[in-house]
């Protein structure tokens, strides 16, 4: 038996909306520690890792480890039916190939029950090494979204360069070139407005912009985003979900042919 209650159905809805274009089917692994999902896009260029800790839920019960394969577009269809302030309760047991989503309005006057068919998904579990990164940049998530969207109108790829003083995002295309330079900014009223650059050694990497633009769909989930880079390694783009976990996106770099 699995049962978990979230104060805001809208949170899971936003999470699924932010990842469902990259991965259409995925298996949620449920255990005493929480809910996890890890899946690569069909081209094996990007990976989504979602972790929702059990202590971040209002109620969390998983008698034994349990896998729930779901079509994320179907899941999104159901989560869209939740009211803005509804709570969400998820229930599933191994006897049925179903997961139930219960949406309850704040005054408990409306209770909606949606049952989603689970599916068997053959997915391989990947070991993601806990690497030390050459550079870590934290910046407002809306700023990162703006940068990748703006550069996406100029070129297909972005060259990210981190030095001690700044991080530069550069793109080139048929119409011309663009460079956006962000300096470290620590003296802000709100911590989430900071741009923090931690550099062990300078890095310069190139990535496909369309994936980064896709990752930035998670902007509404967190005020700030952390970008971790090492030469010739996949970049990690992390959105921390307050009090409950994170969604991380990994993207393999482009390399010289």
């Amino acid at each position: 038996m699995f049962e978990a209650q979230m104060a805001q159905a809208a949170l899971l809805k936003q999470i699924i909306e932010s990842i469902r274009e990259l991965i259409t089917e995925a298996t949620f692994e449920v255990s005493g520690t929480g809910m996890m999902l890890q899946a690569m896009d069909s081209s094996h260029v990007s990976l989504v890792a979602l972790n929702l800790r059990s202590d971040g839920f209002q109620l969390f019960r998983a008698d034994r480890p349990f896998s729930m394969g779901m079509n994320l577009n179907h899941m999104a269809k159901m989560l869209k039916c939740a009211g803005k302030d509804d709570t969400l309760t998820m229930r599933a047991d191994e006897a049925n190939d179903l997961v139930t989503f219960l949406f309850e309005s704040p005054g408990n006057e409306r209770l909606a029950e949606f049952e989603l068919k689970l599916m068997d998904i053959t997915s391989e579990n990947l070991g993601i090494p806990d690497a030390e990164y050459s550079a870590t940049v934290s910046m407002p998530s809306a700023e990162f979204q703006r940068i990748v969207k703006d550069l996406g109108s100029i070129g297909d790829t972005v060259e990210i360069t981190v030095t001690k003083d700044d991080v530069r995002f550069a793109a080139s295309g048929d119409i011309g070139n663009a460079t956006i330079k962000c300096r470290q900014l620590l003296d802000t009223e709100k911590p989430e407005d900071r741009t923090l650059i931690e550099m062990v050694e300078p890095v310069n990497l190139t990535f496909a912009l369309r994936y980064l633009i896709n990752f930035s769909k998670a902007t509404s989930l967190a005020p700030s985003v952390t970008i971790k880079l090492s030469t010739e390694m996949p970049v990690v783009v992390e959105y921390k979900l307050s009090d409950i976990g994170y969604v991380r996106f990994y993207l393999a770099p482009k390399i010289e042919d």
Binding site: H44, L126, T157, Y250, A252, E256
Partner: peptide
């Protein structure tokens, strides 16, 4: 430029 795949970075466990 060529696109690297994640398969060479993350091993199946």
């Amino acid at each position: 430029m060529g696109q690297k795949s994640l398969d060479s970075f993350f091993k199946s466990v």
